[in-house]
């Protein structure tokens, strides 16, 4: 089958998959909100605009105001932006490292595989959060970029494991042997023969890393190790709890950020299941 035809076929099944459509719709909705949200927001997220303090949603303040009189909607849309950034970068770094290590281990085999596999298993046992927090605790100034880095650097083992197993099974297939026998260089074999056949795995691994990075960032932010002088959904929840939003009943302060995270991550998971059905010919053909 030619590449074009493959892509057409993929789109054909992708557009007919309900799970994929629902997931994609939710993610796109929030993604668009990050772009147009700041335009809709009347206020700067840090400005103390409402002298009345915490007030429920009104026509003036769409999502109400915080204890300090800040505009929750403004904080929400800027926080959403941080969430997507963390997912994209943190998840991207995690996927990249995982893929490199998994590829190398699965493709080389032997002692290289033994060592990398050992390393993967070790990092897999250590709770990611524990490492994150010990690093974060010692950094005086933390930016979102640094948060992405440390999340990506600790979240790769899952991906590495999956990619390794997949590479293992691929490299023993006929077409790879053929390429190797015909004297192709290792790197060329990987990029021309193996990688295209693993595209589906890469996409799904990235989606899972994306969701995982968002949840990890929310956790870090919530225990006070998020970016300093920035806004994120996790930080919103932290400040809300710290300043008694619960006791004051300011639900509009802590419901939107958590709801958005749940919706985005849930949509990503559902999308992943949908993609699995699309990519896996067993589930659709003959």
């Amino acid at each position: 089958m030619s590449e074009d035809k493959k892509i057409n076929e993929f789109l054909y099944f992708a557009l007919r998959n309900k799970k994929l459509r629902i997931g994609l719709f939710i993610v796109l909705f929030f993604l668009i909100l990050t772009f147009i949200g700041p335009m809709l927001a009347q206020n700067d997220p840090f400005d103390y605009v409402n002298p009345g303090g915490a007030e429920p949603p009104s026509s003036e303040y769409l999502f109400g105001t915080t204890f300090f009189g800040q505009d929750v909607f403004a904080q929400f849309v800027y926080g959403l932006r941080a969430t997507f950034l963390v997912g994209l970068l943190g998840g991207g770094i995690g996927t990249l490292i995982g893929v490199l290590i998994g590829f190398t281990a699965g493709y080389r085999g032997g002692i290289v595989d033994e060592l990398l596999n050992m390393l993967t298993n070790i990092i897999l046992v250590i709770p990611v959060l524990a490492v994150l927090l010990i690093i974060a605790a010692y950094l005086e100034v933390r930016t979102i970029l640094i948060e992405c880095m440390i999340i990506g650097l600790t979240a790769w083992p899952w991906t590495a494991r999956a990619i390794r197993a997949q590479t293992f099974s691929l490299r023993t297939r006929e077409f790879v042997d053929l390429a190797r026998l015909s004297g192709m260089k290792s790197s060329k074999v990987i990029f021309t023969e193996i990688a295209p056949n693993m595209m589906s795995y890469l996409v799904m691994a990235f989606i899972l890393q994306f969701g995982g990075a968002i949840l990890n960032a929310a956790t870090l932010d919530f225990i006070g190790l998020g970016p300093t002088n920035a806004i994120s959904l996790g930080l919103m929840m932290q400040v809300a709890v710290l300043w008694g939003a619960l006791q004051l009943g300011s639900w509009w302060w802590f419901v939107p950020p958590g709801l958005a995270i749940t919706a985005i991550v849930g949509a990503l998971y559902v999308m992943n299941v949908g993609l699995d059905e699309v990519f896996n010919p067993k589930l659709r053909e003959m």
Binding site: G211, L215, A218, T219, F222, G234, M237, A240, V241, L246, Q247, G249, W251, F254, V255, P257, G258, L259, I261, T262, A263, V265, G266, L268, Y269, V270
Partner: peptide, 21 residues
């Protein structure tokens, strides 16, 4: 899927708010 995508602290906050407050 919804539950597993829920950040732990948010679920905690919601429960605390609803059942506690």
């Amino acid at each position: 899927y919804v539950l597993t995508a829920t950040p732990y602290m948010w679920l905690g906050i919601l429960l605390a708010w609803f059942f506690g407050i």
